[in-house]
Simulated scan of single mutants.
Amino acid sequence: MFITFEGIDGSGKSTQARLLADHLRATGREVVLTREPGGSPGAEEIRALVLQGDPDRWSAETEILLFTAARRDHLERTIAPALAAGKIVICDRFADSTRMYQGLSRGDLRPVVDQLHDLMIGRDPDLTILIDMDPATGLSRALSRQTKDERFEAFGEDLQVQMRQGFLALAAEFPARFRVIDGGRDVAAVAADVAATVDDALQKAPA
Rank of each mutant, 00 (worst) to 15 (best):
A205C: 02
M133R: 02
G183M: 04
G86N: 01
D132F: 01
D124W: 08
P55M: 09
D182I: 06
P81I: 12
I64Y: 03
W58P: 01
T128G: 04
E30N: 08
R110M: 10
A154M: 11
Q162H: 14
P206W: 11
M133E: 00
A207H: 10
A169G: 13
S97T: 10
A60H: 03
A84S: 13
P111L: 04
D108Q: 14
G166Y: 14
L143S: 12
S14T: 15
F67G: 02
Q115P: 00
P125H: 07
A17V: 07
H23E: 10
G183I: 06
K204V: 00
G12C: 07
A43T: 07
V50N: 02
I88A: 06
A43C: 02
A21F: 02
A43R: 03
G122V: 14
I8W: 00
Q165N: 14
L20A: 06
I121K: 04
G122H: 08
L49E: 12
S59A: 01
A95Y: 00
V194N: 13
A69W: 09
S59G: 14
G28L: 04
E63C: 03
R99E: 13
L33N: 08
Q16W: 08
R145N: 03
G39C: 05
T34F: 02
L168Y: 01
R35E: 09
D132R: 01
E45M: 07
G86M: 05
A95S: 12
I121V: 15
A17C: 05
R164C: 09
R106A: 05
C91R: 08
R99L: 13
C91P: 06
E36T: 05
S97H: 04
Q52V: 12
V31H: 01
D200L: 09
V113A: 10
V89D: 09
A201K: 03
F178Y: 15
P135S: 13
K148A: 15
A69F: 08
V180I: 14
D9F: 04
R164E: 07
T137Y: 00
A17S: 14
I3W: 03
L19E: 12
Q115I: 04
G103N: 12
E44W: 04
E61F: 02
L119D: 13
K148I: 02
A188P: 01
V180A: 07
L143R: 15
Q52P: 00
G138R: 11
H117R: 10
L33P: 04
P37W: 07
R35H: 13
W58N: 02
I129F: 10
F174I: 11
F174R: 15
A192W: 02
D149N: 15
Q16M: 04
I79Q: 05
K148S: 13
T128W: 05
A201F: 12
R185C: 08
P37F: 02
E157F: 00
